[in-house]
């Protein structure tokens, strides 16, 4: 009897694991497909940065962290979760994105960004290197969803004014504002 019970428990566990694996297998491609589509391409032109020149390592760090910022922002606005905002954002950028997510949670809306490319130009780099202002010409597909149903899909070319400041180990987006043109 005990043996039968052991086998029954083990078979239930096996079935549960198999089902779990199947669910993950079915869901994962969709999720990873979304994440791939959302991985932003970022390029930075720092030739015109003044009054301080941008070093190569700094340039790479900014590109890396700006990519992470948009990736996380897209995740936050698609999944309506504030957790992805915790790493790459600070100050006003974090506050307004936080408000966006909370507002979306209330209204049942979400935004999906795909095929992002960002062409950054450094327009100001502070004398002591404690702030950098960037102009971002962003190109992406934007879907607006109401409770999961797409109500609007468009190809967007947008311009953003960005302020980034360094923290101990990365650059943080402190300010992100869309403008009609530079």
């Amino acid at each position: 009897m005990r043996r039968f019970h052991f086998f029954r428990v083990r078979s239930c566990a096996t079935v549960a694991c198999t089902l779990g694996f199947l669910c993950c297998s079915l869901l994962w491609p969709q999720y990873s497909g979304g994440a791939d589509a959302g991985t932003p391409q970022v390029q930075l032109d720092a030739k015109k940065a003044a009054p301080r020149a941008v070093e190569n390592l700094t340039e790479r760090g900014i590109v890396r962290d700006y990519r992470v910022a948009w990736n996380n922002m897209a995740l936050a606005l698609e999944l309506n979760s504030v957790a992805p905002l915790d790493g790459p954002f600070t100050g006003e950028a974090k506050t307004s994105l936080w408000q966006s997510v909370i507002s979306q949670q209330r209204s049942g809306l979400s935004r999906r960004y795909a095929d992002q490319t960002h062409e950054l130009e450094a327009v100001f780099y502070a004398p002591e290197g404690d702030a950098i202002e960037l102009h971002d010409t962003a190109d992406y597909q934007l879907q607006i969803l109401d409770n999961g149903k797409v109500v609007q899909e468009e190809h967007v070319v947008a311009h953003y004014v960005v302020l980034m400041t360094p923290s101990s180990d990365r650059w943080l987006v402190r300010y992100l504002q869309a403008v009609p043109q530079f």
Partner: peptide, 13 residues
């Protein structure tokens, strides 16, 4: 009709 407004910090319907 249904009216949507989406901006920075805003998402209304």
């Amino acid at each position: 009709a249904t009216f949507y407004l989406l901006g920075q910090g805003v998402s209304n319907k």
